[in-house]
């Protein structure tokens, strides 16, 4: 199993060489995302992991057309085989994409919900906006169904967002995201600040919606959540995707192939609990060679001079090669 092999089905989202540059005052340029390439198939969950400031949230905003005016994007991000999210205008995105073809599960649900309206009112409004359901009674029933789909308890529907616990607020936000029956769900740090039990419940529910045939792109720095939910993992470092791998080989045997990904996993408290030395480079002043070279124990002259290409789902001069790795994995599985 090569991680990035094309699935026979048309991918729900196909991102090719997506780059985002921020033009700053004083002529500076910030390379927030560079040449990102990945795809998500129906019924599949891809987790985009990396530390804060590595560009993963910028990537999510680029897909939703929510970048500030000083950002420039290149490449393509094709949704459902026909719409390029990067070139589609704001009208198209607002009328046919957000909510209808991409459901957004937000980072802080409490802030995402309107504080002065009940959950039911917000569900009903979204239903009227996104679906053909008409008539007070029909909308009311549909709101109940929408809540049930996200396991939001019916007796809490008439509550205001501040009366909900963090977990219920997250479910209410998920219910809203699911109303448009979008084929792609985009979850941006959906578990930040939640405790472990709640993380697992949130993640399991998202997984359930994926198993119903949706594609899920989850952006997170929580590796445990990624391990629990994802089919494949994309590791981002300093604006680039450095490795894409199947979740089982990545978290299990034989483990990640990129030294950064390995370092990140080893830093977990359940593993070595040892940090990667140093800090990531500035996105405004990236080195010519591999961005990770300065922190990498395996780096040599080639790494500092030449940027490794992203080939066979890996961007590293010294990583284990895909073939050998797959063989090891096949051997381990057998």
């Amino acid at each position: 199993m090569t991680a990035d092999r094309e699935t026979p089905v048309t991918p729900v989202l196909d991102v090719r060489d997506l780059s985002v540059r921020f033009r700053m005052r004083g002529g500076r340029d910030i390379a927030a995302v560079t040449d990102a390439r990945f795809s998500v198939a129906p019924g599949e969950c891809l987790a985009l992991v990396g530390e804060s400031g590595c560009g993963k949230s910028v990537l999510a905003s680029a897909l939703l057309g929510l970048l500030p005016a000083n950002a420039e994007t290149t490449g393509s991000a094709v949704l459902g085989g026909d719409t390029d999210l990067l070139t589609a205008g704001e009208r198209t995105l607002a009328r046919t994409v957000r909510g209808r073809r991409i459901g957004l599960v937000p980072q802080s649900p409490a802030a995402h919900l309107t504080p002065v309206r009940t959950v039911r009112a917000q569900l009903e409004e979204t239903l009227r906006e996104l679906t053909g359901v008409r008539g007070a009674a029909a909308v009311r029933d549909a709101a109940g169904e929408a809540a049930a789909r996200a396991s939001f308890p019916a007796d809490h529907l008439d509550r205001y967002p501040h009366e909900l616990s963090g977990g219920l607020a997250q479910r209410a936000a998920t219910a809203l995201a699911l109303i448009g029956d979008a084929p792609l769900l985009l979850a941006d740090e959906p578990t930040t600040g939640l405790d472990r039990d709640l993380v697992e419940r949130t993640v399991d529910e998202l997984r359930r919606h994926t198993d119903e045939g949706r594609a899920l792109l989850i952006i997170t720095h929580d590796l445990a959540a990624a391990e629990r939910i994802a089919d494949r993992v994309a590791v981002m470092y300093a604006g680039r995707i450095v490795e894409i791998a199947g979740s089982r080989p990545f978290f299990g045997a034989p483990g990640p192939r990129h030294p950064y990904a390995k370092g990140l996993l080893d830093a977990l408290p359940e593993r070595d609990f040892a940090p990667i030395p140093g800090m990531p480079p500035e996105l405004g002043a990236l080195p010519d060679g591999c961005a990770f070279a300065a922190r990498c124990t395996r780096a040599d002259a080639r790494c500092t001079d030449e940027r490794p290409a992203f080939e066979d789902a890996l961007a590293c001069h010294h990583g284990l090669t895909g073939r050998a790795h797959s063989l090891t994995k096949a051997a381990a599985d057998a």
Partner: peptide
């Protein structure tokens, strides 16, 4: 709010300080 590597780095700083100073720690978390 931090990634695994930064978490491990900060915990290591706290532990280095505690080893050298003998300070006590109350770590609150989930």
């Amino acid at each position: 709010m931090l990634d695994a590597s930064t978490t491990a780095a900060l915990v290591a700083v706290v532990e280095t300080y505690r080893a050298e100073s003998g300070a006590a720690l109350l770590a609150v978390g989930h």
